[in-house]
Amino acid sequence: MHIHFVDPYQTGQSPVHRLNPRAKLVLALGFILVTAAMPLGAWPVYVLLFSLTIATAVLAELRLGFLLRRSALALPFVLAAVTVIFTTPGTAWLKLPLGSWAISVTGAGVVRFLSIAIKSWLSVQAAILLAATTPFPDLLVAMRAVKIPRLLVAIFGLMWRYLFVLADEALRLLRAREARSAKLPTSPLTPPPQGRGMPLPWQGRGWGLGSLLWRGQVAGGMVGNLFLRSLERGERIYAAMAARGYDGEVRTLDTLQT
């Protein structure tokens, strides 16, 4: 879960880092667009695109392992596309009997599936390269430069600034809950903790509706708590903004970090 809270930015001074953030944003989007427009099964093109991402990673002085590992994380969604292997019409490679039906794995289906997976993987790499070589404040500048409404960009900026602060608060709430709760076994296969009377899942109490509702209530209480604190913090931030002259208009002096 902590992958969320690792800043994707990798500090550096490479030519890619120093490239104008608006250019990088446009290039990344352009790459993803081009990748999406490429036909299925265009393996040579995919290889070419991959060489582009690798080249960029090298130019950016990023560890290749970093790029490949992070890009693999986005792939579980691929399972959503798995069925095309079976449903795309074409010459069958093999048939799997399922009762009175038979589903077939078609060549066309495998091509389609692999193309989707590869194109997705390439696109994720482009997104990672963008985030890894561009500090987020510069991404905000880039967004304003491509005419995303200033108000929206300002909201993004504030969200980013307080992401870590609130994540810390959430973690504290989680730890407080853990400190106060007896651990229930997490699966029917793990033995219950030592001691008396710990309900096993199939004995009802641990997983019954009442217990579920209670746990939902505890979680909901944490969310509610976090929400109220966030609301109050929002008011305090507004007071601080007003104290320095904020009038509702978003004004910025765009300066880049790299």
Partner: peptide, 17 residues
């Protein structure tokens, strides 16, 4: 800006709970 920014961060953090 401040309210929606912080609440967006809140939802994001809340997804951890």
């Amino acid at each position: 800006v401040p309210i929606m920014g912080v609440l967006a961060a809140c939802i994001f953090a809340g997804q951890m709970l």
